[in-house]
């Protein structure tokens, strides 16, 4: 077993894990952070996306051991207490989720996009999110919610 110290959503965490355990396994089974979902376990669906160093990462494709010293944001860390992130507000307002299983990964990935590129085109949003599978919506309302949020955030910046 390996001992690991890391920061998740601003809080310090220590855990021990088997070297084969992924960061996703650790988040869900050891730390009780079940917001990141396992849709495939092989990096194809994006439901387990977390943010590390301003970039989205599939937590199923990273070992728990590799989290040593990292600062990690999960979907549970996107809102500021009771204040939802504008993306969260707009996903609800624009009905950008049906079953909601892909939503945590999409929110984390999109938040990273808007921090890197506050004014993305529709095509840029679609390609950025190509690794986040959604089977319910046909992506239409997701893309609209992202574009709307980006515009709102630019106005309020």
């Amino acid at each position: 077993m390996i001992q690991v110290s890391t920061t998740i959503n601003g809080d310090e965490h220590q855990f021990v894990c088997d070297p084969r355990e992924t960061l996703l396994d650790v988040l869900r089974d050891r730390l009780g952070l079940t917001g990141a979902k396992e849709g495939c376990g092989t990096g194809d669906c994006g439901a387990c996306t977390v943010e590390i160093g301003g970039r989205p990462v599939c937590s199923c494709l990273m070992l728990g051991a590799e989290a040593e010293g990292k600062e990690i944001t999960t979907v549970e860390g996107i809102a500021d207490g009771e204040d939802l992130h504008p993306l969260q507000v707009n996903f609800i307002k624009h009905a950008a989720l049906q079953c909601g299983i892909c939503t945590p990964g999409i929110l984390v990935a999109t938040k990273a996009l808007l921090e890197e590129n506050p004014n993305p085109t529709e095509t840029e949003v679609r390609y950025w999110l190509a690794g986040n599978l959604c089977r319910c919506t046909g992506y239409d309302k997701i893309i609209r919610a992202v574009m709307e949020t980006a515009a709102e955030m630019r106005e309020n910046a």
Binding site: I52, V57, L113, N132
Partner: peptide, 9 residues
């Protein structure tokens, strides 16, 4: 190669 997430790694 892969998605945005894969590109990170």
């Amino acid at each position: 190669i892969g998605s945005t997430q894969i590109q990170t790694r």
